[in-house]
Each structure stands twice: as structure tokens, then as C-alpha cells.
Design a protein around this nucleic acid. Sequence first.
DNA 1: CCCCTTCGATCGATCGATCGATCGGGCCTG
DNA 2: CAGGCCCGATCGATCGATCGATCGAAGGGG
Lengths: 186, 186
Amino acid sequence: MTTEERVREAAVRLFAERGFHGTGIRDLAQAAGLSSATLYHYMGTKEDLLVEIMRTSLTELIGKAEQITGDETDRLVSLVKMHVRAHAEKPRETAVVDGEMRALTGERREEIVALRDRYERFWQDAIDDGVKARKLKVADPSVARLALLEMCSGVSRWYSPAGPVNLSDLTIQYAAMALGMLGAAR
Amino acid sequence: MTTEERVREAAVRLFAERGFHGTGIRDLAQAAGLSSATLYHYMGTKEDLLVEIMRTSLTELIGKAEQITGDETDRLVSLVKMHVRAHAEKPRETAVVDGEMRALTGERREEIVALRDRYERFWQDAIDDGVKARKLKVADPSVARLALLEMCSGVSRWYSPAGPVNLSDLTIQYAAMALGMLGAAR
DNA sequence: CCCCTTCGATCGATCGATCGATCGGGCCTG
DNA sequence: CAGGCCCGATCGATCGATCGATCGAAGGGG
């Protein structure tokens, strides 16, 4: 593993555990096994590091969402399973993406927000199409999207691979709950 | 409005917007219209302030949860409506409770975590009872509780009273989605 | 009524510590 | 001996918190 990767892993872990503002440069350096000066040989600013973590994670999610095809219900189920799996397998990365956006400033913030909006568009489209096709029944599609995304993203806040819950089962459970809450025809 | 209340309101707003570690004593003082020295006349440490905000908010939620009665499904619906309403009416307080727990240290953390656990117990009991009574159908009641709570708490992350969504409608929508995702008999 | 004391409220100045970031130089390897 | 890698030392800024001093209002004795 390269030093850059070690820095990145340390940052992901600490940002997730203590938050961006709760993590100091010296904490980061120690976790990566470097001095704080050497740290700057492998990264830009602390905010650069955060942006890069978020960009990588969001770009990966978007890439996976783009590959999803099928009818309205299939797409929604695939989105949920993919999202839940990602949040369970990489809880720290996704928790940082979901929770530290407010730490970004200026243009970087806009860039990351745009990526997030682009990703959430897949969800909105899947829900809207499902409603149009009368396969889903929701009072307000936008509210449904927000509620569904919060539910699925929340996985990163509690899931532990060491816990009793099998990951494949988990994605299936979430897909079933998603269909239920969206009033899918049974 | 007393000065203490002004300090508290400023703290809630800034903690919610920038996070605990992202909010400085001087930011707090300026928002409350005081000098940083005077601020300490009205509060203990910064962490004291955070603990008090969380304790008040959680105690209020628990108080409301205790008043809920009815059969299994009724209790669940009432919990969802109460929770969503609270998170929509006081999005900043609840966002602080949900998002800044990691900023607490030592015993204060344990105290607040205990309050949260006590509140979530109401949800677990309602779900478990519903499953026992065969009015709900979920694969794993604990996973269902976590998913449901994340969904409902997420309201504080996006709801705006100035937005197009009526609050009473919102609580009804969420109750319907909750019943759907838990496989309630229709 | 007037002076003197008391006290809550307030603030400018400042504390030691830590923040994010930088610099010059040492060490090792090719 | 040139260049990538690394770090001790240090920068100015800001952190959370505290200090002594000052203000005006309230109260009580003469």
C-alpha cells in the first residue's frame, strides 16, 4: 500500500469518527505514521483531502447507478441494493460524504453538491417513472425520495461487518422495505 | 427573552449549521450579542452548552413518547407523526442531537446515549409488539427500527417550514410510508 | 436625601495550548 | 552527488477559557 493510500485511509477513518473539524493535522499524521510536515508531501490542504474523498466516493456511486437498467421497479430495487451495499461495505467513506458537506467552502462545495444532486437524480427518476407506470403509489415523489435516501444512507451510521446481520440479507430487507414504503403493487 | 435563552438559541443555530467543532466561542458570542467573556457569565463550558441542548431535546421527545397509547399500529403511527413533527418544527435542535453526539466525551456522552437509547426503546417495543400481533411483517425488527428511525430523523436535514410541504400532510405521508415499509396489513 | 456598599453584568486584554501550514536541512538511495 | 523522502522547528492565527476592572442599579444607615 502506498503512503498516499495510507494517508487517505487514516483521513477517512478520523473524519468519520471525529468529524472534519474535530480532526487535527497532527492526529492525521500520527494515524498515517508520518510527521505533520511529511503529511504535506502527500496531500494539499486538509480540505483538499476531504474533497478528494468525497469526489471519489460520489463518482463511484454515480458510476454504479449508471449501469443500472430494467423496468421501473427493477431499477429502484437495484438502486437500493447497490446503495445499501456501498454504505455497509464502506461506512466511513459514505458517512463522511453524507455528514461533512457543510465543512466544504466555496467552489469545492458547489462541485460536491452537484455530484450529489446528480446521483440523487437517478433516485428521483426511478421513483417518478414508477409512479407514472402505476407500479408505485406515493403522495409526494420528492418527499418519498428524501425519506428513502435517508433511510438507506443511514446504514453507514450503524452497520458493522462484524455484527450479526448478513450483508446480502440486509440489501434484500431494505429493498423490501423500500417497495413497501413506496406502495409497490404486491 | 432572557440572555440565557439568546445564548442557547445562538448555540443551537451555529451548532446545527457549522457543527460543534466548527463553531468557535467568538462566533457564539457574536451571534448572541455578547463578548466572549460575558458569554461565560451565562454558561459553563462549550460542551456544557451542547449537553444541555441535547438533554432538553431528548427529554422532551421521551416525554411525548410516554404519553402515546393505543394498539400496536396506533402507537407506531403516533410515534412517527410525533417524531416527524418534532424534527420539522425544531430541525436545528434535533439535527444537533442526531449529529453531534460524537463531540461529547466521557460521562456526558454516556448520559446522552442512555437518553437516546431510552427513546429508541419505545420504537423497538412498538415494532416488536406489532410483529407479535401479526399486524406488521418485517424480516428483522432491529433492522426495521434502525431504518425507520433514520428515515424519520432525516426530516430535520431537509425540511424547511418555508417550503411547499404542509407539516400535517408530511406527518401523514411518513406514517403511511412507515406502515408500508413494515408490511402493515392493508 | 445622600453617601457608601454591594452585586450582577459586561468587556478588553490576555492566558497557555493548539490550529493548519511552511521552511530549511538531513538522510538515504541510485 | 543529485533527488526523492522525511522531519524538527517554527510560523502567525485562532482556539477555549480566565483575568482584573468597570459600569449602573439596588439597598441601607445616618
